Computed example of a mutant assay.
Amino acid sequence: MSVRRKLIAGNWKMNGSRAQLAELSAIAAAAREAAGVDVAICPPFTLISLAAARAGGLAIGAQDCHQSDSGAHTGNVSAPMLKEAGARLTIVGHSERRADQHESDALVSAKAQAAIRHGLRTIVCVGESEADRAAGRAGKVVSAQLSGSLPDPEGDGEMVVAYEPIWAIGTGKSATTADVAEMHALIRAHLIDNFGDRGGRIRILYGGSVKAENAAELFAVDNVDGALVGGASLTAEQFVPIIQAAARC
Rank of each mutant, 00 (worst) to 15 (best):
S78V: 00
A232K: 04
K140M: 05
A19V: 04
K6T: 11
A232V: 00
A115K: 09
D222S: 01
G157Q: 14
E164I: 06
K83F: 05
G172W: 05
E237P: 00
G148F: 03
A185M: 05
N76P: 00
V126D: 06
A19M: 03
H118W: 09
G226K: 02
G36V: 06
A135G: 12
I123T: 05
A30N: 03
H73L: 05
P241C: 10
A215T: 06
N194E: 15
E33A: 15
E164S: 03
H190Y: 15
D156P: 10
V221R: 05
I116F: 15
T171N: 10
E23D: 13
I202P: 10
A29Q: 13
F239P: 14
L234P: 09
Q145I: 10
V3R: 10
G208C: 03
L191Q: 12
A215P: 02
A40M: 13
K13R: 14
I204W: 02
N15P: 01
P44T: 11
I242A: 01
V141A: 02
Q238K: 15
F195S: 07
M14V: 08
I204F: 01
K111I: 05
A99H: 11
G226I: 06
I60Q: 02
N76C: 13
G86Q: 02
S147G: 07
I123N: 04
A168H: 04
E237Q: 12
Y206C: 11
L186E: 11
R198F: 06
I8T: 06
Q244K: 15
G57D: 06
R117T: 08
L47R: 03
G196A: 14
E154I: 08
P241Y: 09
T46W: 05
V240W: 04
G119N: 13
V141C: 00
R97C: 00
S149G: 11
D38K: 14
W167L: 13
E213T: 10
M81G: 06
L82V: 03
